[in-house]
Simulated assay, not measured.
Amino acid sequence: MTLWTQEAMNARLVRYADLIPCRTAFIDTKTPGSTEKENFTIIGAGVSESADQHVHITEKHGFNIGAARQPFGCVNSQHSHDTAEVFMVHSGRWRLLFGPNCEDGSLEIGPGDVCSVPIHMFRGFEKVDDGVGMLFTVLGEDDPGKVTWAPAVFEAAAGHGLKLAKGGMLIDTSDGDYQLKQVELEEVIDPETVAKLKTPPLDKLLECVATYERVRANPNPRSPLAAEGVEEAAIITPRPTRDGFEPGPISGWWPHGCNLRLLTLQTGAYVPMHSRQEAEVLILQEGTLEVSWADGAIVMGAGDTLTVPVGLPHAFRNTASVPAIAFVARGTEDPAPPVFLG
């Protein structure tokens, strides 16, 4: 039986202040308009194309957690994924752009909002208000594969010396093409492939968005975590779950491999010791949250990420004067009920 010491649990916590960014993560990082973006790989391998990308926690969870931090006007270029990509807005306002050339419309999301963009379609995003903003992401599966870039992204990157090798490794040729010897390059996708990555109608895409104002606590049956001052709301629930959640508000027509919830504790609220059968990752959106277990406790602050070991009895408490609000990812589409001690 693993002894979860304070030191061992601290290694499963990634503080917002300790996040290590990569500014060379993708093929568009030298393209004007995209040079200031920072990419973070928090849990899992992610989809970065750069050998410089730091991975904070390598343990497999069945999904990946990452983030992007960008200033006003900074763009993350048009791309497609083979597994789920979920955006959780931590700060700032963001515009999601659809289609290989941004021609298929857009949606705007802000703090606390969530959007799960369907697989096999082009999307990009840009920061649209003043200052620097932060998006957390969930990518489906342990190996989310590689990014498929729109043809225009390849063309723009080539003008700034960046090439992509087969398998997704970035090569910078700004000092000469000698690095390309004996390297097979990724090819620009053909028009037929572009046509297959078709954008659904915007009214269909609206099914993939849950605004913070729209999210409601699980009413029937009540969440097993619900208590005085404690609410658990569904955000992504692909199908009915054993712990009492019905599908929605985002269910999707593609695999997610996880559930996403919003857990809110008012001042003084407490969730007693309980354990889970699946991976559980908390990303604190607002306030502070104490997570305790038999041998210690961690106090999370806004922007911190904690992965709780499977089977470890743990409790939650809000000791601050403002609500604690956390996104919680559970590593299955059908989470089991928590097991409470005593």
Rank of each mutant, 00 (worst) to 15 (best):
L3A: 15
W4P: 00
Y16V: 14
A17W: 05
R23P: 01
K30M: 14
K30V: 04
P32A: 02
G33E: 00
E38L: 02
I42K: 06
G46E: 05
S48I: 02
Q53A: 08
H54P: 13
I57V: 09
T58Y: 08
H61F: 10
G62H: 06
N64M: 06
A67D: 00
C74D: 08
S77Q: 14
D82M: 14
M88S: 07
V89G: 01
R95T: 04
L96V: 07
P100S: 10
N101G: 08
S106K: 07
S106F: 13
I109R: 01
D113P: 00
V117A: 02
E126S: 03
E126F: 03
G133H: 01
G133Y: 03
L139S: 10
V147W: 06
V147R: 11
V147C: 00
W149V: 06
F154R: 04
E155G: 10
L164E: 03
A165S: 06
L170F: 04
S174G: 01
Q179C: 14
E184D: 13
E187M: 12
V188D: 03
I189E: 07
P191D: 12
L197F: 03
T199S: 08
K204P: 08
E207R: 14
A210V: 02
A210Q: 08
P221W: 01
V230F: 09
V230K: 02
A234E: 13
I235L: 15
P238T: 06
G244A: 06
F245V: 07
G252P: 01
W253C: 09
H256A: 04
G257D: 02
L260F: 05
T264W: 08
Y270E: 13
Y270C: 11
P272C: 08
P272T: 11
E278G: 13
Q285Y: 04
G287W: 06
A297C: 12
G303S: 04
G311H: 08
H314N: 10
R317S: 14
N318M: 14
A320W: 09
P335T: 12
P335M: 08
A336F: 11
A336H: 12
F340D: 00
L341S: 11
